[in-house]
Simulated scan of single mutants.
Amino acid sequence: MSNIGGVLPVLTVPFMSDGSVDLDSIPRLVEHCVASKAHGVVIFGLASELYKLNDSERIDILKIVLAAANKRIPVIVGTEHSGTRAAVGRSVEAEKLGASALMLYPPTFVKPDEANVLSYFKAVGSAVKIPVIIQDAPAWTGVPLPVSLLSRIIKETPNVNYIKLESPPIGDKAKLLKAEGFNIIAGYGAIHLMEDLSSGIDGFMPGCGLPGIYVEINELFKSGDIEGAKKLHQSILPLLIFQLTSLDTLIEIQKLLLKKLQIFTTSYCREPHVPISAERIAYLNVLLKDIGLKELQGV
């Protein structure tokens, strides 16, 4: 399943109120995405609270996600690490377990120079046969990835041939990287989705709370109904802007939506976490009511 594209929701990891991983909710979340006709799922992205999981939990979660997907859709697995050797180990293990593709942002603890970024992605790409997605998110990582460097990476390691662009506007960079052979995935919470789709992206990674909406926008756009896609995107834009106040807010809102849908047992986020205030949750509920999302009707 090497064809990665379309709507690729980033799965949040459910926890019980005591902070333990809620393993029983994970298959329901995957099925939620499959039933919504998502084209794949991502586990261990930034919105997965990956930085709060130990290695044993990661393996348990990944096995459940893969079993729930049951090869019906691709499963993209985040395997980044601050150490190159450790990132290679995680990547090889994910491929053996059945990952369809990998996604990594560059090391962040020790800010790497271009030579170290190059050796990092070459080491991972050379160790696996599946596609590797580079996550270009300098606002989060503090590590810029210029086109000249990315061009060297894909030339020297051809299976590192996807890039997720997180710094809008992405159009100019996407065009340059397309010419270098990259497949383009858009991120940044789908706020700029219409502009991203117009720039010829191959796929995008939204939140997992309401994946069906993104599938509908994507299908409208691909069918030529640009105005219909724009109208639907504009209807949810207030929610997208609200939830991207911070990464913590984005994660918690996905969990609140999934709890409303009875997919998650709780909306608990592991510490450290800055929770949404009661006033902002009240505003969120008003926002959802005003938007009139059909997925939440009767919930």
Rank of each mutant, 00 (worst) to 15 (best):
S48M: 10
L50H: 13
V77S: 10
L210S: 01
D136K: 06
P206Q: 04
G19N: 10
A278F: 13
A67H: 15
E156H: 02
V7R: 00
K289L: 14
T79I: 08
L240M: 13
L197Y: 04
S36W: 01
A101G: 04
Y268R: 05
V128I: 05
L176H: 04
P238T: 02
D290M: 05
L250A: 10
I26D: 11
L244G: 04
T84N: 12
I134M: 06
K173D: 13
P272Q: 13
H273R: 07
W140N: 13
D24K: 13
P106R: 01
P238C: 05
E219D: 09
R28S: 04
G6M: 01
N54R: 01
K155I: 06
T84P: 09
I26N: 08
A87T: 08
T79L: 03
C208I: 03
V274G: 06
K294D: 15
L149G: 01
G83Y: 09
D196Y: 02
A35N: 12
S223R: 07
P144R: 02
F221G: 00
Y120E: 14
V7M: 00
K175M: 09
G189R: 05
A282K: 14
I64K: 05
G203W: 02
L193W: 13
P275Y: 12
E95S: 01
D196L: 00
E195M: 06
H273A: 02
S25P: 10
L220Q: 13
L284H: 01
F264D: 03
V110A: 06
I73E: 01
K289H: 14
F121H: 07
D225G: 02
D24Q: 15
L118K: 05
K37E: 14
E49W: 07
K294M: 12
P146E: 15
I153E: 13
I134L: 06
P106A: 07
A94N: 11
G6I: 00
L250T: 08
D22I: 04
P158T: 11
H39S: 04
V41W: 00
I154K: 06
M103T: 09
L97R: 00
K71A: 11
N70A: 06
I64E: 06
N183P: 01
K294R: 14
S20T: 15
H39N: 13
